[in-house]
């Protein structure tokens, strides 16, 4: 099949970008979206042009490295699917496809379709961890955890940090990402000691990075390839109230001096 692409090309972080039109001919429907770009890039390379830069790693939907806004939708038209797991059979011959990078001040473009997502790393570094040495795996059932909590924590931890939530959000908010990381620990006993401090630190870092502010549109969960639910945002909000208004202030002293 033959399709027309409009791809965002930007030489480096400092340059102004623009859309460049490419004709993608003889595309096989069973190619993945990224393989289709590989085909274009092979041609561009042979023609002595700069290939289109896009992020990817595992190409099996588990690493969260890929990320393209395809016709106005993060990761393209299929629900619960990363761009690398999207196939050209989701399109038809003659289609016109616009390919853009994640757009957010906190995700500056590095080159073409690649953005710098280290803001996410810093949000994690601000509190998305457990300080106690974890040691080797504990004996099964040594720490009792309600089955529901274990499942919900697992669902939150399914986040692969791709950033589609930010890309799709009208406000370019990172709440779904941050909330998934807050919730995955908050739901488990190991996460309790730092629970109040964690949410404050991660929210403060999120604000500092210049993400927008959640207004509960829910387009983030709609494009999330791992279906992380906005219920986690309610959990973050709950923890935030708790840590500010309810948590024992004296008890926080020891924890505060640790970081």
């Amino acid at each position: 099949m033959n399709i027309t692409l409009h791809v965002w090309r930007q030489k480096d972080a400092k340059s102004k970008g623009r859309f460049v039109k490419y004709e993608a001919n003889d595309i096989i429907p069973d190619m993945s979206f990224l393989e289709m770009l590989d085909v274009i890039n092979e041609r561009l390379t042979l023609e002595g042009e700069d290939p289109i830069a896009f992020d990817h790693d595992c190409r099996e939907g588990i690493c969260g490295t890929c990320g393209l806004v395809i016709n106005g939708r993060a990761h393209g038209p299929r629900a619960r699917t990363t761009a690398c797991q999207l196939h050209m059979r989701s399109f038809k011959g003659g289609d016109v496809i616009w390919i853009e990078p994640w757009r957010a001040k906190a995700f500056p473009v590095v080159k073409d379709l690649i953005v710098d997502r280290s803001a996410f790393d810093r949000i994690i570094a601000a509190g998305g961890f457990i300080s106690a040495p974890a040691g080797s795996a504990p004996d099964g059932n040594a720490i009792p955890i309600p089955k529901e909590n274990a499942d919900l924590a697992m669902d939150a931890a399914a986040c692969i940090g791709c950033g589609a939530c930010v890309a799709a959000c009208r406000n370019a908010s990172a709440m779904l990402f941050t909330a998934s990381k807050v919730a995955q620990f908050g739901l488990l006993p190991q996460g309790q000691p730092e629970r109040d401090v964690r949410v404050k630190r991660m929210v403060a870092q999120m604000d500092l990075e210049g993400f927008g502010n959640c207004t509960n549109h829910r387009d983030c969960q709609a494009v999330c390839p791992k279906s992380v639910s906005v219920d986690n945002i309610a959990r973050l909000n709950r923890d935030f109230i708790r840590s500010t208004l309810v948590a024992d202030r004296r008890a926080a002293v020891g924890v505060g001096s640790a970081g």
């Binding site: 859309f19 106005g72 908010s173 927008g212 509960n216 387009d219």
Partner: peptide, 23 residues
């Protein structure tokens, strides 16, 4: 804050999936 968070917008119209006219 939210307006400042996306200085360069999308060229193709964004697809709204779960957001509502009200939101």
């Amino acid at each position: 804050g939210s307006w400042a968070a996306r200085p360069i917008g999308y060229r193709h119209r964004q697809r709204w999936i779960e957001s509502t006219y009200a939101s």
